[in-house]
């Protein structure tokens, strides 16, 4: 190990080493400690918006995906209190969009659903908003269904930082936020997005789907049918 990995934090009492510059989430994932998250993907700059990865550090709540690991931090993550808060956040995500799992192609492979399974969500609890959201089917190979968007900005980050196309952006604030498309018409069909783009591989929900792929994997063989999101994300450090 040497001095390079000599610094440590503890997560739920477990000693976890970290390198300078790593976040608590980075250190946790490297040590096979699962902290639930949706807007975080280790391939991209942290966004810190979904707050599912909130942990308690020395008594204060912080987003573990953006909080740098610092020598001696005592982190609490897998506690009843924090998991209850994560469950409430997940339930709010369900009711503020239109997440109708039985009709969604992403069902069984959806991270929002999988996190809800992991947290034992038996119902969305809160009153549903049933918001009016636009569907954009103008692209020949891609469907954008804003009903399922959770504003994680992963497609925004992937299109900007990896694809170099800047196809997506978030517009508006709070409950008025929408995922917008960077073309004069505002339609996906008028952009240079390709179905092979990185932006098409990162959506945690069924908001961005490749056309003509629906229901090709039978129920029982989908990613989260038999494996929790914890096992999947620790297993290969992300799909």
């Amino acid at each position: 190990m040497g001095t390079f990995m000599s610094k440590t934090i503890t997560i739920d009492g477990q000693v976890v080493p970290f390198k300078e510059g790593q976040t608590i989430m980075d250190a946790a994932m490297a040590a096979d400690v699962y902290i639930p998250h949706l807007c975080h993907n280790p391939e991209f700059t942290p966004h810190g918006s979904c707050k599912l990865c909130t942990v308690k550090v020395n008594g204060r709540n912080v987003a573990s995906c953006t909080m740098p690991a610092v020598e001696g931090q005592q982190v609490l993550s897998d506690t009843l209190e924090l998991n209850d808060e994560r469950l409430s956040l997940t339930q709010m995500l369900f009711v503020e969009g239109n997440h109708i799992c039985p009709s969604c192609e992403k069902s069984g492979n959806c991270q929002l659903q999988a996190v809800a399974y992991y947290l034992g969500m038996m119902s969305p609890h809160y009153n549903h908003f049933y918001p009016q959201r636009e569907v954009d089917a103008s692209h020949p190979d891609v469907l954008l269904d804003r009903n399922r968007c959770i504003y994680c900005e992963l497609c925004v980050r992937a299109s900007r930082d990896v694809d170099g196309k800047n196809v997506f952006g978030l517009s508006g604030r709070g409950i008025g936020s929408t995922l917008v498309v960077n073309s004069a018409s505002g339609l996906l069909g008028d952009t240079n997005l390709a179905a092979t783009d990185k932006a098409m591989q990162v959506c945690p929900t069924g908001a961005l789907l490749k056309k003509r792929q629906g229901f090709t994997v039978p129920i029982g063989q989908r990613i989260f049918d038999h494996h929790t999101i914890k096992d999947v994300q620790l297993g290969d450090k992300h799909e």
Partner: peptide, 18 residues
């Protein structure tokens, strides 16, 4: 007891809500 997606979320019939 609420059983099934429709009783719990509105489900497929709630697709007409918009």
């Amino acid at each position: 007891v609420a059983i099934g997606a429709c009783a719990i979320t509105g489900g497929i019939p709630a697709m007409r809500n918009n």
